[in-house]
Design a binder for these strands. Structure first.
Lengths: 190, 190
DNA sequence: GTCTATAATCGGATAGAC
DNA sequence: GTCTATCCGATTATAGAC
């Protein structure tokens, strides 16, 4: 029984590169990460990265195309008593940052936002459309309050996951929820 | 009347370079800013930057040694009715970001935090000692709540001054205070 | 004190053999 | 599909003339 036809193919390699890219962009940001570094972590030749994605920009875009459906998230957040929307929103946020794949993409995004215009646009759009637009529309929250709420979440990400300031960095989810959820709820009740 | 002796000297040049450094680090972050760019903006030769400061790291450190006395800030925040500490804290924050020199230093810091360990340490220390330490000590606020409050301020800086998401980016100070100050106050009242 | 010139690296991207 | 070799631009940093 001889094997014929094409062998397993490159599908695997591409995925390796993508995973390595997420890790590198997450660790060093857009500017800090290098094609060589990504290739090194993936165990392949730097040229292959170009071969599969074309340019550094495109690798970045592919790495950020996170495995998350904003629509589903919002649906989950909105499903349930209105008095606990803040808590569900925060739980969702913490769950995303706790999951391996999305957290790497988010980390890459937030690490790159400061110096990369492309990343800043992405975050702006993500906040505007995926989160603020829908939630404010559904709940009738004034735009400014919603943006302030988003700012708090961004700050939480920065302090807890990027700069890692204690005790916020190692606080258990539940403790954090007890402290922060009421504040988010307050913003939603304008 | 012939001019004799040494001319005005380098004092001025050094200050020019420092101002240019603050602007460049603020605009592009640590990694994005270049010695050449700083020298260009200051109207001097790149070598001079090395001459005065030694290395890029040291220029960065000098640029971040902001013209602000944390002790005085805290004193101002604590002076007055306890029920308005949140508001005074926020006013101070907005005033600092509104002033030209400190705002450039802060921008440089926050733009560099994501990718530069030195900057991350600096922010951590600044939050810990200059702000959290003193305020929590003086008011008896639990550490976790204080850190959450700091996170909110960091997020505000990111969204309002770095990524510039509307309507938060262009909202007048007073509107912002009306929305956000009560939240800060809530954190302070455990 | 200020400049020119240049050394030493490093990173992204491409060409082309296998 | 995967590799080697290489080009090209940009950057930090230094040596040394004036």
């Amino acid at each position: 029984m001889a094997k014929t036809g094409r062998r397993p193919g490159p599908t695997e390699t591409r995925a390796h590169i993508l995973a390595a890219a997420r890790a590198q962009f997450g660790a060093h940001g857009y500017d800090g990460a290098t094609i060589r570094g990504i290739a090194g972590e993936a165990g392949v030749n730097p040229s292959l990265v170009h071969h599969f994605f074309g340019s550094k920009d495109q690798v970045f875009a592919a790495a950020l195309d996170f495995p998350v459906d904003p629509g589903a998230l919002v649906a989950t957040i909105l499903a349930g008593p209105r008095a606990q929307v803040g808590e569900r929103l925060l739980r969702m946020f913490l769950a995303l940052w706790g999951a391996p794949e999305p957290s790497k993409a988010f980390l890459a995004l937030i690490r790159s936002v400061s110096t990369n215009e492309q990343a800043a646009d992405l975050l702006r759009q993500f906040l505007e459309r995926a989160v603020l637009g829908r939630v404010t529309e559904a709940l009738g929250v004034p735009r400014l309050r919603a943006t302030a709420l988003a700012a708090h979440l961004v700050g939480l990400a920065m302090v807890r996951y990027v700069v890692r300031v204690e005790p916020l960095a190692s606080a258990p989810d539940e403790e954090l929820i007890a402290v922060v959820a009421p504040v988010l709820q307050h913003y939603l009740e304008g």
